[in-house]
Nucleic acid binder design. Structure first.
Lengths: 194, 194
DNA sequence: ATTATCTATAGATCTATAGATAATGC
DNA sequence: ATTATCTATAGATCTATAGATAATGC
């Protein structure tokens, strides 16, 4: 029944990866420790040798989701010819992202739940927020560093809110309108950047 | 033990009002039917003569939260001297709203949970979304009705996302920066409205 | 007579732990 | 010998229902 150190480390990785997906898909209360372990092919009882509590897994899965996102956004920006910022905005506000919250932005998938989590988890979230803002600042338009940072924050807020509103509605037309309008506002603000 | 029709109707109102507050404060899984009933001074078992299920109460409490919000925003707009739109934006992105999710905007408090709810509840949410957008369109700047509607959608998205990000962080300085930057972007877009 | 509320409980689910088992790694 | 995983379960919690109780309202 015991496995090697390497296999055990792999198991831990798999649990965190499954959690990062499922929590974004269903919420932190939406999947149990037992179900996550079953998904990875292990049994419930083994969980607590990897993590001291479900909250510890939540904290680790939140960090995982953020680093996955930054890697993905970096790739999208690098693949873009010309407008790196526009490429990330366009990707973020796409139907593809809308339909895949399990692999998408943490803030859009779990924002309102994150703000209720205990202090240590919120600090991990805050660190992730800083990383995202820094990344966006690096590709945002604007004459000064301060203006680019402001543009990064405003864009991040608009995108998170736009995706949240789009996912809330059951009206497909309204959904498209929201995604399109927010994307357009962020694009035209680029040319209007003072 | 039985009460009059009028008192029973009052009880139902109180349950919905308590739910609208507590759900925004703690999430839909954050307070039980038994605790809600206790808060109103009734016992658990009586719940199911008022509502067929917890989901029915959730749908009603969502509608309640939206209508409370529109009444409040209308009051804020009416009290404003001059810039009605700016007054609502300023109120939305205030620390006061940040600290009181239990009486604040539904989308900021429960957005990511709402999008996972069953279809009938999502349709109630969609109707609320339309009402909010229509209200904001009525006070938004812009030369044409279409531009005012677009401005309403973009402003709503930015405000929801800004408040979500502000509540996610445990860093007070970053929180203030987010609220200020989003508010400023929405104010300056007013003058830049084409 | 009807029914709003109460008491009590069924049935499901979830986190966390205890002790057994069998494979690793010194 | 140590320990990663498994089986089994304790203890808590939650939704929903059943049947009793007592006040309303015809």
């Amino acid at each position: 029944m015991k496995v090697s150190k390497e296999v055990m480390a792999e198991h831990k990785e798999q649990i965190i990866a499954a959690a990062a997906r499922r929590y974004r898909e269903r919420g932190f209360d939406g999947i149990s420790v037992a179900d996550l372990m079953q998904e990875v092919g292990l049994t419930h009882g083994g969980f607590y040798r990897h993590f001291s509590s479900k909250d510890e897994l939540i904290a680790l899965s939140v960090l995982r989701a953020v680093s996955e996102t930054i890697i993905e956004w970096r790739k999208i920006a690098d693949d873009a010819k010309g407008d790196r910022f526009g490429a990330v905005v366009h990707y973020y506000l796409s139907l593809r992202h809308h339909d895949h919250r399990e692999t998408g932005c943490l803030a859009a998938a779990l924002g309102c739940e994150l703000s209720r989590l205990p202090s240590p988890v919120k600090e991990a979230v805050t660190e992730g927020e800083r990383q995202i803002i820094d990344f966006l600042r690096g590709i945002a338009p604007g004459k000064t560093k301060a203006l680019r940072r402001k543009q990064a924050i405003v864009a991040f807020a608009s995108m998170v809110g736009g995706m949240t509103l789009a996912r809330m509605t059951s009206d497909g037309e309204l959904r498209q309108e929201i995604l399109k309008d927010v994307a357009h506002a962020l694009s035209s603000s680029v040319s209007a950047t003072v």
